[in-house]
Design a binder for these strands. Structure first.
Length: 295
DNA sequence: AACTCTTCCAACCGCGGGACT
DNA sequence: GAGTCCCGCGGTTGGAAGAGT
């Protein structure tokens, strides 16, 4: 029944690999080609390592044609766009970048690219903490994963430098942008599945605005509420919070002004000054209010 | 010079799914 | 069919190196 354990953990060496260990591993693989059983390999070549460790060392470091560091702008773009589409599926992303390993890309994303595109770690974690807190009393509204939040932020930052509810399709119920537009204007179209929409006028609250909304999409009617709130973290960074609760499903989106990072040269910046942040935020709130009037 | 803080990345850990017995 | 193991993956950690004070 079953198999013997892969290795005795207390007898295996951990930590950085020595040149001698590397050489043993490389020699074996060059001689025998592919490894059919990584767990058995260390015993065969006299290494006091776990098979998993050998595999990792080979795949991430010793394998021929591996590139380390020096990511090009084109590679940045590929990583960025794939991250938006599929999230942290590093092995899939690595498959699109010859010579790069999933570990390398993961490290590069976590240490550099994420900061370059989404802001400094301090800003980023402040954002994560606020967003992760969301959940209702029944616990059905699960917190978004960090990866999902990053993807949303990245998508929003790359889509446009000015934010508008008119074209922020991700904020709306699962309908096409066209359907939402029709719903918002209340126009009925013969060949359209959207019948109309109604919303209460956005009511100013202490933190922003709130409104109730009903969207009719044959044969179903979606109803719920939307809230727009102001955000400010400890470091004076400002942003907006949009919470949509539609048909029992709750979604939260955050959109932060991006602080210009003078030290790093500030890769992507949306709002360069505190004043422009205020202008943008006011625009978003006006946009939300107008939306409620037009529905 | 000495200490602390930050950045970076190699390596480890734990898990899920499929393979094996 | 059940129990166990192996592989591959993503998340996390530890420590070296560099930067700042």
């Amino acid at each position: 029944m079953g198999r013997a354990p892969c290795c005795e953990k207390e007898k295996v060496k951990k930590g950085p690999w020595s040149p001698e260990e590397d050489e043993k591993l490389k020699s074996y693989i060059h001689l025998h080609g592919t490894v059919s059983n990584w767990i058995a390999l260390p015993h065969k070549i006299g290494l006091k390592r776990c098979g998993k460790s050998c595999r990792l060392r080979w795949l991430n470091y010793l394998r021929p044609n591996i590139k380390h560091g020096g990511f090009s702008e084109e590679e940045d773009n590929i990583i960025c766009s794939l991250f938006i589409s599929i999230g942290s599926r590093w092995s899939i992303i690595a498959a699109q970048l010859p010579g790069r390993t999933d570990n390398d890309i993961k490290n590069y994303w976590n240490t550099r690219l994420k900061k370059k595109l989404l802001g400094t770690p301090k800003q980023y974690f402040s954002n994560i903490n606020k967003l992760s807190y969301h959940g209702d009393s029944r616990g059905t509204a699960q917190a978004l994963t960090n990866s999902a939040i990053e993807r949303l932020q990245l998508q929003m930052q790359l889509q446009q430098s000015t934010f508008s509810f008119n074209n922020a399709s991700t904020l709306w119920p699962p309908m096409s942008v066209e359907e939402v537009k029709v719903a918002r204007t209340g126009q009925l179209a013969n060949n359209n599945h959207v019948d109309g929409a109604s919303c209460s006028v956005a009511t100013p609250t202490l933190e922003g605005y709130a409104m109730n909304c009903t969207l009719m999409k044959s044969p179903t009617v979606s109803s719920g509420s939307m809230e727009l709130g102001r955000l400010e973290d400890g470091g004076g960074r400002r942003g907006v919070e949009f919470v949509k609760e539609m048909d029992g499903s709750k979604e939260s989106l955050y959109w932060w002004g991006y602080d210009f990072d003078a030290k790093s040269g500030g890769a992507t910046k949306l709002w360069e000054t505190a004043a422009s942040v205020d202008v943008q935020l006011e625009g978003i709130f006006k946009d939300f209010e107008q939306l409620s009037h037009s529905l």
